[in-house]
C-alpha cells in the first residue's frame, strides 16, 4: 500500500525530531531557539494544510483563518481564565468548530472545489479586516482587548495547573517541539486509518467513493475540522513565540506562505511541508537582513521553480529517487543470480 505510506516511517522521523530537540540547544544560539517556537507554530500550519489538501484533496486557500482563530482564541482565553493549558484546548476547539460550521455549508451545499478555495480565502480576508477594526476599549472579550491592528498580547506557556509558573524560553521550545511531534505522529497515524484512506480515495475520485457507499461530505467535513484544529494549535505556538497576535495572521501573505511551504515540501507527504517551513523561514529571514535581494522576490522565484521543475515537491522527489535506485539494485542482483544459476546448470 504505497500511496498510503507506512506508520513506521512516521515513527522514525518522529525519533529524529526528538534527537534534534535534544541537540538543538547546543548548536543554536539562544535567540534562534526563541525564534524556533514561532517557526514550529508555522510548520504545524503547513502540516495541517498538507493533511487537508495533500491527503484530502481539499484546496483550502484560507488555512490561515483557522491558524489566526487559534492564535486569537488562545490569547483571549489566557487573559480570561489565566493559564495556558485550558486555553490551548479552547483554541483548538474554536478553530475546529468554526471550520465545522463553515464546512457544513460548503460541503453539504455541494460547492465545487474552486469555490471552496475562494470561499476559504475570502473568510480569511474578512477576518483580517474585521480584526483590524477592533481598536478601542469597546472591543473586548471578557478582560481581553482585541487591540485592532496592533493586536493583543499572548501569554507565555505555563506549567499545567499553575498559571503563575511560566515556562522559560528553553522549556517553551521543548514543549513546542513535543507538540509538533505529537501533531505529526497523530496526522501520520490518521492517514493510515480507514478514515484517512477514505479521504485519500475522495481526493482520487469523489464520485467513485460515493458510489462505494461512503458519505463523502461527512468525511470531508471531519477532515476539514480536524485540520483546522491542528492549524489552530499552530496558531497558539506562533503567538506564544511572537508574544502577541495581530490581524496579520489572517492576511493574504500568510495564506500564500502556507501554500508555498506545502508545494515546496511536497504535498503528498507530511514531513515535507514541515521541513520546507523551517528552511524557507530561515532563508527569507536571512535575506531580510540584507538589502540586495528582496525576500519576497526570492520566495516567488522558488515557488515558480518548484511548480515548473519539481512539481511533486522535494521530499517525494527524493523518496522516488531512492526507490528507483533500490529497484535497480534489486534487478541487477536478480540478473546476477540468474547468470550464476545458468553457469551452474551448464557446468
Amino acid at each position: 500500500m504505497r500511496l498510503y505510506g507506512t506508520f513506521n516511517g512516521t515513527l522514525v522521523i518522529a525519533g529524529l525530531a526528538i534527537v534534534f530537540t535534544l541537540i538543538a540547544p547546543s548548536i543554536f544560539q539562544f535567540f534562534t531557539i526563541i525564534t524556533l517556537t514561532q517557526v514550529i507554530g508555522l510548520s504545524i500550519l503547513a502540516l495541517s494544510l498538507a493533511l487537508v489538501w495533500g491527503f484530502g484533496g481539499i484546496l483550502c486557500f484560507g488555512q490561515s483563518a483557522f491558524f489566526g482563530i487559534g492564535a486569537y482564541a488562545y490569547s483571549v482565553a489566557a487573559v480570561n481564565i489565566g493559564g495556558s493549558t485550558g486555553s490551548i484546548l479552547i483554541a483548538i476547539l474554536a478553530a475546529a468548530v468554526f471550520a465545522a460550521i463553515l464546512g457544513y455549508f460548503v460541503f453539504y451545499g455541494k460547492v465545487s472545489d474552486v469555490y471552496l478555495a475562494v470561499i476559504t480565502l475570502t473568510v480569511s480576508l474578512i477576518l483580517y479586516s474585521l480584526m483590524r477594526r477592533t481598536s478601542g476599549p469597546e472591543y473586548k472579550i471578557g478582560n481581553a482587548l482585541l487591540g485592532g491592528f496592533n493586536g493583543t498580547g499572548s501569554a507565555p506557556l505555563n506549567m499545567p495547573g499553575d498559571g503563575s509558573a511560566m515556562l522559560f524560553p528553553m522549556q517553551t521550545f521543548y514543549v513546542s517541539m513535543a507538540i509538533l511531534v505529537i501533531a505529526y505522529v497523530f496526522t501520520g497515524w490518521l492517514v493510515t486509518t480507514k478514515f484517512g484512506r477514505v479521504c485519500v480515495s475522495i481526493r482520487e475520485n469523489e464520485v467513485r467513493t460515493e458510489l462505494l457507499g461512503y458519505d463523502t461530505r461527512l468525511y470531508k467535513l471531519c477532515l476539514f475540522s480536524i485540520s483546522a484544529g491542528i492549524a489552530g494549535l499552530g496558531g497558539v505556538l506562533f503567538c506564544v513565540g511572537v508574544t502577541r497576535v495581530t490581524p496579520d495572521v489572517f492576511s493574504l501573505g500568510q495564506s500564500a506562505l502556507a501554500i508555498i511551504w506545502v508545494i515546496v515540501g511536497g504535498r503528498m507527504t507530511l514531513i515535507g511541508p514541515i521541513l520546507a517551513t523551517f528552511v524557507l523561514y530561515f532563508l527569507t529571514s536571512s535575506l531580510g537582513s540584507q538589502q540586495i535581494l528582496n525576500a519576497n522576490l526570492v520566495l516567488g522565484i522558488i515557488l515558480v521553480v518548484f511548480v515548473l521543475l519539481v512539481p511533486n515537491g522535494v521530499v517525494p522527489t527524493i523518496m522516488n529517487w531512492f526507490e528507483r535506485r533500490r529497484t535497480k539494485r534489486y534487478e541487477r542482483q536478480k540478473e546476477r543470480r540468474m547468470k550464476l544459476r545458468k553457469h551452474r546448470a551448464i557446468g
Binding site: 500500500m1 504505497r2 484512506r197 482520487e204 467513485r208
Partner: peptide, 20 residues
C-alpha cells in the same frame, strides 16, 4: 471507468470491501 487512478489495484479493492 471509475477507479482510484493513483492507487494500486489492491487499494482499490480494499476501499470497496472495507465499507462493509
Amino acid at each position: 471507468p471509475n477507479l482510484f487512478d493513483g492507487l494500486t489495484a489492491v487499494e482499490n479493492l480494499w476501499l470497496s470491501s472495507r465499507r462493509w
